[in-house]
Design a protein around this nucleic acid. Structure first.
Lengths: 236, 236
DNA sequence: ATGGTCAATCTAGCCGACTAGTATGGGAGA
DNA sequence: TCTCCCATACTAGTCGGCTAGATTGACCAT
């Protein structure tokens, strides 16, 4: 563990099972590249770092294994998975297929108040960018995509996509320096909502596809620039 | 625990971590309705039943929680989730969106040897039905759907769908008595593969949609017949 | 008979210790 | 110098026990 900051969990912090809290902490550190691809995550070290026993740590690591952020090699080590280009592309394929279907259905079913809320979220995103608050921008991104699913009465679909999205989020975070400008992403969001409001499923679907493709546009450059973060075994 | 059969895990059975083995056992019993919706799954009882300590049991239950087959109420109980009609429909929506996109792409990319393998799997299904081997039929079903994903070079997509599919499988198992006849499902499979072989993405997509819709055709009857297995809180 | 309280008994959460399995590094032998 | 072997020091897996929290039901006061 190369992180020196010992962020202890305060007493009774979280109010739920510690394991869930630990999972969120580790997940966030992996997505934001604090724990780097390939890095070893010793259960003992994590336990000491967070001030709990190994049990909640193990629980968190099991959940992260299911999400594909971590890989356990029994009796040997637990490591942060390297980013697999094949896996990221599969994640994009899956997410694109689902979100296309979502906005298509949203174009048919969304009620006016749903559309109003989508527009409100886009306005908030504009504000967040003007204030340079990137974290808030990304959170609102989530909210908007969830709003699409809610507007067609299948919020569960969005929830299921979360683990898939994680794979893309890792890339997205690394891309931050040379990513698609936020203003462009906001225009795409607006175009999708406009298509939904206009009851135009084809346009909504097409815009969503384009939007999701652009999110990973810098992936090839990343692989070239940071090869040690990527899984060299995949055929790409 | 109302199950009297004490199926102990043999020594060194499984060869991997016991927790993974336990997960498979419990998962199968839930899907096949041995552990019924709403039933309490006490960690202590499961540990005694399977002849291991509570630790591997907990590990398995955590994984099953992620899959949505189990719900943990801290300090109170762990129960088999009741089947949520809303959740099953969301699962179908998601799976249909993805598998439509998969066969569409397969129609463009599948190589001859992929198509040959799909046809072989369908023949095996025919054999399995003739011999009355339903379990084998369902396993081959999985293999075929995986083959679709493999033929477009995104096996990862299929793997991600597994947990989603579990929600549908529970319904499917309960439907067995009055489900769509297997011969009809096989004809649909054949039609999908024919469309892929004919490089006709639209036809493949349409057939897949119809196929997935039929799998749950008996859901309304099930809810009426076995209301205690279903989550009454969802709006349906 | 009814309402409220508290002890007994459950649960899952959490912990410390031990085990089995794996890498590693140093030393003996060639 | 090189190779092999083994002691050592790790790892995650597993276990039994304890704890905090929740339910239950008997008992008591009214």
């Amino acid at each position: 563990m190369s992180i020196g900051i010992a962020q202890q969990l305060g007493p009774s912090e979280g109010l739920g099972p510690i394991g869930l809290h630990v999972r969120k902490i580790i997940e966030e550190r992996i997505v934001t590249n604090v724990f780097r691809p390939g890095e070893r995550l010793s259960e003992n070290d994590l336990a000491e770092l967070l001030g709990v026993s190994r049990q909640p740590i193990r629980e968190a690591l099991i959940r992260l294994t299911e999400a594909g952020l971590v890989r356990v090699m029994p009796q040997r080590a637990t490591i942060v998975t390297r980013i697999s280009v094949a896996r990221v592309n599969s994640a994009r394929f899956l997410r694109a297929a689902v979100e296309r279907a979502v906005v298509r259905e949203a174009a048919l079913q969304a009620k006016p108040h749903h559309i109003a809320q989508m527009r409100a979220l886009i306005r908030e995103q504009t504000t967040a960018i003007r204030e340079g608050d990137h974290a808030r921008f990304l959170a609102l991104d989530d909210d908007l995509h969830r709003a699409f699913a809610v507007s067609m009465a299948h919020e569960g679909v969005w929830r299921t996509l979360q683990n898939v999205k994680l794979q893309m989020d890792r890339v997205r975070y690394l891309s931050l320096p040379d990513a698609t400008p936020a203003s462009r992403l906001i225009r795409q969001h607006a175009a999708i909502v406009d298509a939904i409001a206009a009851r135009d499923p084809d346009a909504a679907e097409a815009m969503m596809q384009k939007h999701l493709e652009e999110l990973l546009s810098s992936l090839p450059r990343l692989v070239a620039r940071l090869p040690e973060y990527f899984d060299s075994s995949d055929v790409a």
